[in-house]
Design a protein around this nucleic acid. Sequence first.
DNA 1: AAATTCGTACAGAATAAACTGTACGAATAA
DNA 2: TTATTCGTACAGTTTATTCTGTACGAATTT
Lengths: 160, 160
Amino acid sequence: MNEHQNETITNKIILEFAKTIEMFDLTPLEARLFAFLYLNEKAYTLDEMSEALGKSKTSMSTSVRSLVEFNLVTRVWKKGVRKDLYQANMQLFKSFMPTYINKWIDATNHQLDSLEEIENKLQQNEYEDNEKLTLLKKRLNNIIDFHHEVEQSFRDMKED
Amino acid sequence: MNEHQNETITNKIILEFAKTIEMFDLTPLEARLFAFLYLNEKAYTLDEMSEALGKSKTSMSTSVRSLVEFNLVTRVWKKGVRKDLYQANMQLFKSFMPTYINKWIDATNHQLDSLEEIENKLQQNEYEDNEKLTLLKKRLNNIIDFHHEVEQSFRDMKED
DNA sequence: AAATTCGTACAGAATAAACTGTACGAATAA
DNA sequence: TTATTCGTACAGTTTATTCTGTACGAATTT
């Protein structure tokens, strides 16, 4: 396999893999960058990534920072190398799934707070009761239940 | 509770609920529209929705169509009413979660097809073997495994 | 200490997504 | 049959997101 063939196939894989990564709420560039780092395994500088992906250094800086925040990429040191080096975490499932699941759990929790605050207001007999109010309360409770169910689903997913 | 108070609170709930709905990959308007339909329970025409949300009728037409495709909203008939009527499905969890999970399963499956096609090409000794190729094959297998794991996670989620 | 090189903040340009108004075929009403 | 009214296709506008180039403080090298 020559250099050219290798690169062609590698690019195909990157392209496909990146599509999957995007489903975890990463931007297209972040996804492509991670796929690139993952496939090549070794640590890259911002300039090298910029060169390899044909995107600006600024883009690399912001994208790689996101990837570090998501725990998908780690900054590494090599003696003698001045520039920052970044390298993909190689345990894909552990990197992606737990973070994604937690994101859902956190988000639903936060939403629950907001909704329960509204619910409390409704409970404090500030308002004259009538049919509309009763129905509204019921709907709100259903929505809150829904959030609990969603949260629980993702919590269960976490177990396995 | 007077009309004004009711509407204020309803709007707050819609606002919060819509945020959650967006997490299921609906656009902001689709999310807001569903939340509106859900809270009011009854069936609405495009013109009524347009009026209620302050958006164009065209937007309502496309948004509501998406919602129908996602099985979140149903078109209903009422004798004597000429215009199309749409109404939210009221079982939230059943409407949202299975569709979402299936979306993940379908997508990972589709990705698996693409990746396995590439894998097959690599297996057909078209290429002279070398260290790089071996490593690339290994990475590709890891990526494929990752897709299997993700798919399985969502399949498990479906069970409960 | 001066000069170079690093990473990133920030403002603006390019691209993508969301939304609207017009127009038109199909269905209903007159 | 003619006149309205319906839903939506489509083109263009508005808004949001993504990306780039310039600039600058901090760190390293000369």
